[in-house]
């Protein structure tokens, strides 16, 4: 099981790196989906089966699909790819790479004293649901209100009724 963890982890990292360097938006999105699926495997290995399922269904299945729909709606085409090629050159990577490297180094440093725990015990959906409906009830309500706000906001922002002098 540990091997699966490491392999999925490596795939996730690789897919993310590839995603970052693509010129075509749809390609990048597909690589992102791969990364998310790999993370789902990692969740399962860690014993969080519910989280793995949710990751696949909601994150990779709904949110990423929404992304892809919008990108295709925008219909960026060849000019966008050229634009990307022009903007994305090696010198742009320097600063962010340094920053990310520093961050990674800090994380590794912090975590370097952690003890090795072995394969953790799985935490089932029943436990999760019981916790959701008792201590985290308010969180659930707030999350639902957040989603409502998101829906309303997206609706209004997306509504393109042309008004006089509107930006």
């Amino acid at each position: 099981m540990q091997v699966v963890f490491y392999i999925s982890g490596a795939i996730a990292i690789l897919a993310t790196i590839l995603m970052l360097t693509r010129l075509n938006a749809v390609h990048a999105l597909l690589y992102l989906v791969v990364s998310l699926l790999a993370i789902a495997v990692v969740f399962y290995v860690l014993g969080a089966a519910l989280a793995a399922a949710l990751e696949v269904i909601i994150y990779a299945g709904a949110i990423m699909v929404l992304f892809i729909f919008v990108v295709m709606l925008l219909n960026l085409g060849e000019t966008a790819a050229n634009e990307e090629r022009r903007l994305l050159n090696a010198s742009m990577w320097v600063g962010p790479s340094i920053l990310s490297a520093v961050l990674i180094a800090e994380f590794v440093y912090i975590l370097s004293e952690e003890s090795h725990a072995n394969i953790p015990a799985p935490v089932g959906p029943k436990q999760v649901a019981a916790a959701l409906y008792a201590p985290y009830l308010i969180g659930v309500e707030l999350a639902s209100m957040l989603l409502l706000a998101g829906i309303v906001g997206a609706y209004h922002l997306g509504f393109r009724k042309v008004r006089k002098g509107d930006s």
Binding site: T16, L20, I39, W93, L99, S100, A101, L103, I104
Partner: peptide, 8 residues
């Protein structure tokens, strides 16, 4: 992954 996302 977080650092990669930041870089992106």
């Amino acid at each position: 992954l977080f650092a990669l996302g930041t870089a992106g």
